[in-house]
């Protein structure tokens, strides 16, 4: 049958000649190749001491943002939790008390906000879903730990550091 793509290649299997059957020349070739690699610079990046440069749209650990006055942006609307395909996010909403205006931007805020880093797949859908620009995956690689419970990150780890006035 004629080939439509013209990409077909007919391979010819030639019997090995004497030098090829003698193994040794091929082995020398192999040894030369490996020796070339011996003097190459290693490609290893010694993580934790060295870090690979992240790409611009790298998605790492989440951070809950504050606005320009240092108030928490999150209003606990739950859209991030709803959009999360791994169901890693949970939160409890609370009402802002009088006198807390400098802490929370709107009347409703997240009293508890937890992300299970073992469930999270770092897809960034929470970031896209957030109407308040409150959550971004702009952090570092999530560090390792020993216990499962320690991977559930609360507000203490997620909320951005307060502005220094």
């Amino acid at each position: 049958m004629e080939s439509l793509s013209n990409k077909r290649k007919v391979l010819e299997v030639k019997p090995l000649n004497f030098l090829e059957r003698a193994y040794l020349p091929a082995i020398m070739g192999g040894l030369a190749t490996t020796m070339k690699h011996f003097f190459k610079k290693p490609v290893t990046i010694s993580y934790p001491e060295e870090k690979r440069e992240f790409s611009e749209n790298f998605r790492g650990m989440h951070s809950l943002k504050r606005d320009e006055n240092g108030k928490e942006r999150c209003t606990a609307c739950g859209l991030c939790a709803l959009s999360c395909p791994a169901e890693a996010i949970t939160m409890t909403a609370a009402e802002r008390k009088p006198g807390e205006e400098n802490l929370y931007r709107e009347e409703k805020y997240a009293a508890v906000y937890e992300i299970n880093m073992l469930r999270c797949i770092f897809c960034g859908l929470c970031e896209e879903a957030c109407p308040k620009e409150a959550i971004y995956l702009d952090g570092d690689i999530v560090p390792t730990d020993y216990l499962r419970k320690d991977f559930i990150y609360g507000k203490d780890k997620l909320v951005e550091a307060p502005l220094n006035q």
């Binding site: 490996t34 690699h37 011996f38 190459k40 610079k41 290693p42 490609v43 290893t44 010694s46």
Partner: peptide, 12 residues
Amino acid sequence: VAAFFQDRIGPN
């Protein structure tokens, strides 16, 4: 040696 042949660093 294995590491160097494979462009790695090896035990360090």
